[in-house]
């Protein structure tokens, strides 16, 4: 058992429970002892671009401080948004002057820097490895046709990308290791419309329609994402007439393929896979 500090984030404790439950079940099967950070706080959701308003970076840095307090050198996130915020903040405070000023505020606590932020996808690629992942598969996906949807934050800005920001393969490789079939999906790196979902639903509906049509044109049975906001938009902002593809979290797919029986795996995937074409 390898211990792994884990930052869930707010959405994974509420709307995106299925992702957390599925992923944790899967990671246990892959030999990880996942330790949730004690007393974590919201990552900030949207990374602050303010260079001079250091207060906006206190939240994410406080989480890194808690990881340090656990004696861990890295922290896992599942949510694309949390990954974006935490990894960029970790880099932001590599500058000693910024770190000094934030620490003056955090006193008597002090963050020493150096905590690495890892996304589930890179963990699967770089540490578990596709082959070992494939060897752990207990339940065949029978070539379930998956549209691997990256969206923005996993790949942008490019310095923080989990994979080649112009031609990522990691999510497709994971899907294939699990026995699924990754379909061609030209819109996979397009934005879902994100927070415009609050103020300009029409814009989001337009984008979601395009995304779903693109996924369907490639032959997908299902779309897979790691972002709760993408998941919400793809399901809740689907315009009339767009293909009603189920949208799953990567964690759900993992848990299913690795044979987890937790209710976590979700009725959704059972429904889809029972309808899957065999052979």
């Amino acid at each position: 058992m390898k211990t792994l500090a884990y930052f869930p984030g707010c959405a994974l404790k509420d709307q995106a429970r299925a992702d957390e439950n599925g992923t944790l079940a899967a990671l246990a099967r892959l030999g990880y002892e996942v330790r949730e950070i004690p007393r974590w706080n919201c990552c900030g959701t949207v990374y602050s671009l303010a260079q001079d308003d250091l207060m906006r970076h206190v939240g994410p840095v406080r989480n890194l401080l808690r990881v340090q307090g656990m004696g861990e050198g890295r922290v896992l996130t599942l949510c694309a948004m949390c990954y974006g915020t935490l990894s960029r903040s970790a880099r932001f405070v590599e500058d000693p002057e910024r770190l000094r000023r934030i620490n003056a505020f955090l006193a008597p606590d002090a963050y020493n820097g150096g905590v690495e932020v890892v996304h589930l996808l890179t963990l699967l690629r770089d540490e578990v490895g596709y082959e070992r992942l494939a060897a752990q598969v207990k339940r065949e996906l029978n070539g379930l046709k998956v549209a691997a949807y990256y969206g923005c934050v996993l790949l942008r800005p490019r310095e923080y990308a989990v994979d080649d920001p112009d031609g990522p393969t990691v999510m497709e490789r994971v899907v294939e290791a699990l026995g699924g079939g990754a379909v061609p999906f030209p819109e996979r790196m397009e934005c879902c419309g994100a927070y415009l979902t609050v103020t300009q639903k029409g814009v989001v509906e337009g984008r979601v329609g395009r995304l779903l049509r693109s996924a369907r044109a490639g032959g997908a049975d299902v779309v897979v994402t790691t972002c709760p906001l993408c998941q919400f938009n793809l399901e809740e902002r689907r315009p009339a007439g767009a293909p009603a593809l189920p949208v799953l979290y990567l964690g759900q797919l993992l848990a299913w393929a690795l044979g987890a029986d937790e209710p976590a795996v979700g009725a959704a995937i059972t429904g889809i896979s029972s309808g899957v074409r065999h052979g």
Partner: peptide, 8 residues
């Protein structure tokens, strides 16, 4: 609530 910056 969403404006919290976790300043403590």
């Amino acid at each position: 609530l969403a404006r919290c910056v976790a300043c403590n």
